[in-house]
Design a protein around this nucleic acid. Sequence first.
DNA 1: TTAAAACTATATAGTCGCTATAAGGTCAAT
DNA 2: ATTGACCTTATAGCGACTATATAGTTTTAA
Lengths: 135, 135
Amino acid sequence: MRIGQLAQSVGVDTQTIRFYERQGLLPPPGRQENGYRVYTEKHVERLAFIRRCRILDLSLAEIHELKRYQDDPHQSCTAVNALLDDHISHVRSQITALQALEKQLVSLRARCNDDREVKACGVLAGISEGNMHQQ
Amino acid sequence: MRIGQLAQSVGVDTQTIRFYERQGLLPPPGRQENGYRVYTEKHVERLAFIRRCRILDLSLAEIHELKRYQDDPHQSCTAVNALLDDHISHVRSQITALQALEKQLVSLRARCNDDREVKACGVLAGISEGNMHQQ
DNA sequence: TTAAAACTATATAGTCGCTATAAGGTCAAT
DNA sequence: ATTGACCTTATAGCGACTATATAGTTTTAA
Ligand SMILES: [Zn+2]
Ligand SMILES: [Zn+2]
Ligand SMILES: [Zn+2]
Ligand SMILES: [Zn+2]
């Protein structure tokens, strides 16, 4: 299986596959005489795993870490669970931050309901005044 | 006022100030004979405005756009309000996406409550199986 | 058969908003 | 005279790709 087929079967750009290889996430495949990469079913699974991790917004570093755990299948999975817990708190703190931001933006937007001249715009005034301490 | 004082009074790194200048966000200041940048109060205000926009997570492109509106203070502020509305929906869709992600991660985490060997880890199994259609 | 289309390869630069480093020039105080 | 704090430019790095350029190979179709 060549790179294009792998790309299509997993739903990834060929560039991304080469990128993962350079990053050490995807093991270097064999090559044909002409230099073309040749992939196996293992690569399909591995790439699909990476993609599912990315859908979960795990960083490439986190995926690397998971890979290291997979390579030592008899150790305890505490670290795997902990990695996920950490990642969940990453996501939760992002949500919290964005919700605070949304609140701020909505209250800013409320300062300009009608159509004014730019110099009287409540939104611009709000930003310029810097009343951003209401979190 | 030199760059270090500007930086300190707004709470920004000097590198960031030069970066904003290169990006065309902050107008190029005057120079002393030795080449040192000299800033005025206008620059302080402008830089503070940029920073407040960044706290609202507006992109530099969006800030550029706001600047263009400010430069034409007699036009209607519809575009300003629309920019903010768009940005609010950016933020809202990020929140929605992250909440869906959190749900997925929590249900994945629930697949491994106890301490197992890595090869039996419910988390890794969950990612490998790719049961991610519950959104 | 040959020419075009589709695929592959590498190398390099761009995205965004900074941040860090290197290598040097300037200035005030000790 | 030298230290230290400040300033200058240029360049590279972050993360996770994405895009472009240039070139070689294979497949398809006229
Ligand atoms: Zn994470
Ligand atoms: Zn307005
Ligand atoms: Zn936005
Ligand atoms: Zn586990």
